[in-house]
Computed example of a mutant assay.
Amino acid sequence: MRIIDTHLHLVYPDRFAYPWLTDVPALNRPFSFPDYWEQAEKAGIAAALHIEVDVVEEDREAETRFVTGLDPRIAGAVASCRPENADFAAELERLAAIPGVKGLRRILHTSPDELSQTPLFAENLNRIAAHELTFDLCVLARQLPVGRDLAARCPDVQFILDHCGVPDIEGDDFDTWADDLRHMSELPNVAVKISGISAYARPDWSLDDLRPWVEHTIACFGWDRVVWGSDYPVCTLNADLGLWVETTRALLAGTSGAEQEQLFSRNAERLYRLRADR
Results as ranks from 00 to 15, higher is better:
Thr6Phe: 00
His7Cys: 02
Leu8Thr: 02
Leu8Met: 08
Tyr12His: 14
Pro19Val: 05
Leu21Glu: 08
Thr22Asn: 12
Pro25Gly: 12
Ala26Phe: 04
Arg29Lys: 15
Pro30Glu: 06
Phe31Ala: 08
Phe33Ser: 02
Pro34Arg: 01
Trp37Met: 07
Glu38Asn: 12
Glu38Met: 13
Ala40Lys: 09
Gly44Pro: 14
Ile45Gln: 03
Ala46Asn: 09
Ala47Thr: 06
Leu49Phe: 05
Leu49Thr: 07
Leu49Asp: 02
Glu52Phe: 00
Asp54Trp: 04
Val55Lys: 05
Glu58Met: 10
Glu58Gly: 14
Arg60Val: 15
Ala62Asp: 15
Ala62His: 07
Thr68Arg: 05
Gly69Asp: 09
Leu70Lys: 04
Asp71Thr: 07
Ile74Phe: 03
Ala75Leu: 06
Gly76Gln: 04
Ala77Gln: 00
Cys81Tyr: 05
Arg82Ser: 14
Pro83Ala: 11
Asn85Ser: 13
Ala89Thr: 10
Leu92Arg: 08
Glu93Tyr: 01
Arg94His: 10
Leu95Arg: 03
Gly103Glu: 05
Pro112Glu: 14
Leu115Ala: 03
Gln117Val: 09
Pro119Ile: 12
Ala122Ile: 15
Ala122Tyr: 12
Asn124Leu: 13
Leu125Ile: 14
Asn126Ser: 14
Asn126Ile: 07
Asn126Ala: 13
Ala129Asn: 08
Ala130Phe: 05
Glu132Tyr: 05
Leu133Phe: 07
Thr134Tyr: 07
Asp136Lys: 00
Leu140Pro: 05
Ala141Gly: 01
Arg142Ala: 14
Val146Gly: 09
Arg148Cys: 12
Arg153Thr: 15
Cys154Leu: 09
Cys154His: 10
Cys154Tyr: 11
Pro155Thr: 09
Gln158Cys: 13
Ile160Ser: 00
Ile160Phe: 01
Val166Pro: 03
Val166Met: 13
Val166Ser: 08
Pro167Cys: 06
Asp172Trp: 06
Trp177Leu: 08
Ala178Tyr: 06
Arg182Thr: 14
Met184Trp: 08
Met184Arg: 03
Leu187Tyr: 02
Ala191Ser: 15
Ala191Tyr: 15
Ser195Val: 02
Gly196Tyr: 04
Ile197Tyr: 07
Tyr200Met: 11
Arg202Gly: 15
Asp204Trp: 04
Asp204Cys: 04
Trp205Ile: 12
Ser206Thr: 15
Leu210Trp: 00
Leu210Gln: 04
Arg211Cys: 03
Glu215Ser: 12
Thr217Gln: 09
Phe221Trp: 07
Phe221Ser: 01
Phe221Ala: 09
Val226Asn: 04
Trp228His: 04
Gly229Lys: 04
Asn238Trp: 01
Ala239Phe: 01
Leu241Trp: 01
Leu241Tyr: 13
Gly242Glu: 14
Leu243Ser: 12
Glu246Leu: 04
Arg249Phe: 06
Arg249Pro: 03
Arg249Asp: 13
Leu251Thr: 03
Leu252Arg: 06
Thr255Val: 07
Thr255Gly: 00
Glu259Ser: 08
Glu259Phe: 00
Leu263Ala: 05
Asn267Glu: 06
Asn267Ser: 09
Leu271Lys: 09
Leu271His: 10
Leu274Asp: 02
Ala276Leu: 10
Asp277Asn: 10
Arg278Ala: 15
Arg278Lys: 12
